[in-house]
Design a protein around this nucleic acid. Structure first.
Lengths: 342, 342
DNA sequence: CGTTACGATTACATCGTTGAAACAGCGTCG
DNA sequence: CGACGCTGTTTCAACGATGTAATCGTAACG
């Protein structure tokens, strides 16, 4: 087992606390003592026992990131940024996969990992406003990607509705009028889906196009397979759409597959747009028009907000910082899949 | 803060240790006492403080998974399986991104997270046999995807060389003779690249085709961008290849992009095969021929081997279990990108 | 009836670390 | 010269849980 402070102290001929002081960079240690201790530290290859340190300090230095799926590229890319931002603060990230299951999400909220983490960054799918309000666990929390109005918690998201409107406006500007949407979800918790649908409808309305529910079929989840399947359905309509706005890139890539394998061309026969700007869409053929959320900014903001909560609690005993909402930037990236002369 | 054993004990009117006994399912607790304690536990919503428990027990219940990049789909998919397999044992997984940087990899090996984790599953890129042998940290270790012969550590991998040979044989069976490879790396640590190249050359040799180094250009890393760029280079050769074996799917998807945007068809003009079976390749157009490693098996085997090391240490004080090697299954999946009549 | 055995419970020490407070030594100041 | 303040160091008591050994009561035994 590794050496403890006691071992080092014995070797250096000083008290345990002095060694602790050296390790923690405490100011009042005489140079000769410091040097002696440091030699001993090096000789024994001392590493602090984090369990003990955390027990004493009441902090673990670990935050959790709870996501639906790690293998959805959007979340994988986001994770990397969160890990980096947390690393800058000396924090370690523990990843929790909920698979979007309500019960797993509730577990996470109620602190399965409590005592093991200082804070939680959570990207919910199923859990709604009520569950969040009812939460009893007091671990610091930041929500991602969900805009729970009046919600009791900090969160960071992009302006989903505006972004969705912009995509749809772009498709309209290309001259399309029969524009479908893939990704509608009627589950009341599916906030993101609602917002993107709302933005889509905003743009239609502004252009004087009637909303046709048959062009926005319900979509079980947001994987390639769903996109492929719903697209098949759209193509089989008596009047198929001229353009399709998919609520994420995976759906779009699935849809793209269906369109191309039906012998149709993108964008000439059908234009396709996605959402998330995952790397796949930059290398598909055609490349994918999409909304690019500033993932680095989202990650940074989330980590910052956790930090604020944690240090806030320290300074003003358990004062609940006011729920803050950060809106991250996004950009519409027009690529080949919707290229047109406007 | 959460309630501690002391609080529960006070409420139940018993000693701290009795509560501890109830919590840990110790046998000799009288039914009435047990019930009293359980009521108190429930009433205070007691959760054990893991720092304290770990300090006492010397185990953390956390393992680390160190990967080059979480946002490479192969690793993202693998992570999910590792997290699941670890979850079955009640372990939590902490993810460490090395970005393939030698210095980060060395840090991981030397136990940056020591004291915080019980074991490490590590997928190295840069670090080689010598560094592994020189490792001083004693945390249980399992290597992924690397076949370090005579290495001092447990590891699990598929038979890369055989798989690569099978892919190449398939391309040869389709009638191709000018077959390129994307993914060669001359860095001596790049074991996987060497093995796949070896398998490629085995197949060529068996078919009596000369190995032409110009058809296997060095490749800096394994991202789409690299595949796209190297493919561009191959297309610009005086005699471009008829088929290309890419050492992973990302390279293949990048290459596919280049080929298609050059106006060539896949597989008619150029056949393309990849490696890893990431989801993207199942939805690209054309779909991607690839080697599918049994990721679930790899994850399970890695976790099993960690478990064996951990319990081995417990039983026979620090007995080094013999380095074991597990070879996971793989399958060649022929899809559209190489379809031919053989 | 005294001893033993065992079930049930408790007191105590301990894991490694760090905050609070005490203490020792020494120069400074009134 | 005594009080004070500063640096440098140590002692002590926690943090929360658990292993060990001790304790207490009671039933079984010879």
């Amino acid at each position: 087992m590794g050496a403890s402070l006691k071992d080092v102290a014995a070797l250096a001929g000083v008290s345990v606390k002095t060694v602790s002081n050296v390790v923690n960079g405490y100011t009042y240690v005489s140079p000769p003592t410091r040097e002696k201790v440091e030699r001993a530290l090096a000789q024994l290859d001392y590493r602090p026992n984090l369990s003990a340190r955390n027990l004493r300090r009441g902090r673990t230095g670990v935050i959790a990131l709870a996501l639906p799926e790690l293998d959805a590229p959007y979340f994988a890319e986001l994770s990397r940024f969160v890990i980096e931002a947390a690393g800058d603060r000396g924090w370690t990230v523990l990843i929790e996969q909920t698979d979007g299951l309500p019960e797993r999400e509730r577990e996470v909220l109620e602190g399965v990992r409590e005592q093991r983490i200082d804070g939680l960054i959570f990207s919910p799918i199923a859990v709604g406003r009520e569950e969040l309000a009812a939460r009893t666990d007091t671990t610091a929390l930041v929500l991602l990607g969900e805009r729970v109005l009046d919600g009791p918690t900090h969160h960071v998201a992009i302006d989903n509705q505006r972004a969705a409107r912009e995509v749809t406006e772009h498709l309209i500007a290309c001259g399309h009028t029969r524009i479908a949407a893939i990704g509608r979800q009627d589950n009341p918790g599916a906030n993101t889906a609602h917002l993107r649908l709302a933005g889509y409808r905003d743009a239609l309305r502004a252009a004087g196009i009637d909303y046709d529910e048959r062009l926005a079929p319900p979509t079980a989840s947001y994987h390639r397979a769903d996109g492929a399947q719903v697209m098949r359905h759209l193509l089989d309509l008596p009047e198929p759409p001229q353009a399709v706005f998919c609520f994420n890139d995976l759906l779009a890539l699935g849809a793209l597959r269906t369109v191309l394998s039906s012998g149709l061309r993108v964008p000439q026969d059908i234009a396709l747009a996605g959402f998330d700007d995952i790397e796949d869409g930059r290398y598909s053929t055609p490349t994918l028009t999409t909304v690019s959320p500033d993932k680095a900014q989202i990650a940074r903001a989330a980590v910052d907000m956790l930090d604020a909560q944690l240090t806030g609690v320290r300074h003003a005993a358990r004062r609940r910082t006011n729920p803050r909402e950060v809106t991250a930037e996004h950009r519409l990236l027009v690529r080949e899949s919707t290229r047109c002369e406007p």
